[in-house]
Amino acid sequence: MSTVLAGNGLIKKYGTTNALAGVDVQVAERESLAIMGPSGSGKSTLLHTLAGIIRPDRGQVLLRGERSEMEIPPAEGWGRVDHWGENRLSALRRKRFGFVFQFGQLLPELPAEENVALPLMLEGVPRRQAVQRARRWFAPLGLAGLEHRRPGQLSGGQAQRVAIARALAVEPDVVFADEPTGALDQSTGEEVIRLLTSVTRDQGAALVMVTHDAEVAAHCDRVLQVRDGRVSGYSQYTVA
């Protein structure tokens, strides 16, 4: 099982708060990793750091498949994400990562299919093609027939599934999800998680998901426990 994304010795402070106090984490290809822990333990900070949204104070974030350029090696073919400038990070997030947040990430005036097509259009895919490619995600996610609905006309679970489609549309290497079911009821959340993990895996992407719900985490291959900015334990690999 080869690693696609790794964080080594990650430290992040906010004033006197140690949001990350030395975290090591590896994300393998196609695996799903749940990050669990109590509120304020640093889960979101870790996810944002791995996703190139937050720059750590110390430590490295390494992504496979990037040219290293002037970076000090650990190895050729790995990018030091934590060294990159904002523009390059922004492009990286757009092209190689997908994101699912708790709620409110869809543009309310765009029909669902255009919300999904947006990242493709941003990459320069012509509009018609982008929308066609976006539509392919609707059936697998149980959204068939909702292509023209606007987010306001969707239920919470449907909106989250549209968000999943948008995260996957660019065919990313890693999908990041921060409490993707935090705003949903139990059974709807269950369904969304099932789809998120299975479709991500089918797509061939890794999934990094923050949750504080053990039942949600149970859908993942591996669970990382975080407490006070440190890794307090790994669950076992459950992947065959």
Partner: peptide, 10 residues
């Protein structure tokens, strides 16, 4: 929504 879009690389 703008903030989240920006996080996602828009």
């Amino acid at each position: 929504v703008y903030g989240l879009l920006r996080l996602a690389g828009t």
